[in-house]
């Protein structure tokens, strides 16, 4: 667990789709790493220049829905703005009763011949989703590919 906690995320085997576990000392950090894990199934985010910024705001009825909607923004920005995520900045999560909300800045670049896109995440699912708190946070997510 200690070794795993040092990683940002790890990709897990799943028969049909993409599955990963993202780690963070805080819920915010774990969400940030989940965003990078999602991107890693489609392109190498570490090679993308942080030239363009998109502000995202999502809300949800619980942490799971918040996560599905936040990661869904990456897919949406790819499809509609040709945006490739490189980094997540200033991610903040707040809770008021049953209402969770998240704000973040997504940095990246637009699709060009510079970048190889090798995967297609269609949607973020609740399948086998886990949000665990054990010192830090572990998020497990399956995406439809």
């Amino acid at each position: 667990m200690r070794a795993a906690a040092m990683k940002k995320y790890e990709i897990l085997p799943h028969t049909a789709d993409g599955k990963f576990r993202a780690y963070g000392r805080t819920l915010e950090e774990a969400f940030e790493h989940a965003a990078l894990a999602t991107a890693s199934l489609m392109w190498d985010w570490s090679k993308v220049e942080p030239k363009v910024a998109w502000g995202v705001q999502v809300s949800g009825r619980d942490r799971e829905q918040l996560l599905v909607k936040f990661l869904g923004e990456i897919v949406y920005l790819l499809d509609t703005r040709q945006f490739l995520l490189a980094a997540v900045k200033d991610l903040r999560i707040s809770q008021a009763g049953d209402a969770w909300s998240l704000e973040a800045e997504l940095l990246g670049d637009v699709i060009s011949d510079l970048y190889e896109i090798f995967g297609d995440v269609k949607a973020v699912t609740y399948s086998d989703m886990k949000i665990e708190e054990c010192g830090g946070f572990v998020l497990q997510v399956v995406v439809d590919m």
Binding site: V75, V124, D144
Partner: peptide
């Protein structure tokens, strides 16, 4: 993406 988004939207609405 249109169909994927319809599914995503209505899962959320139904929840």
């Amino acid at each position: 993406g249109l169909g994927h988004q319809v599914a995503t939207d209505y899962i959320e609405l139904m929840e």
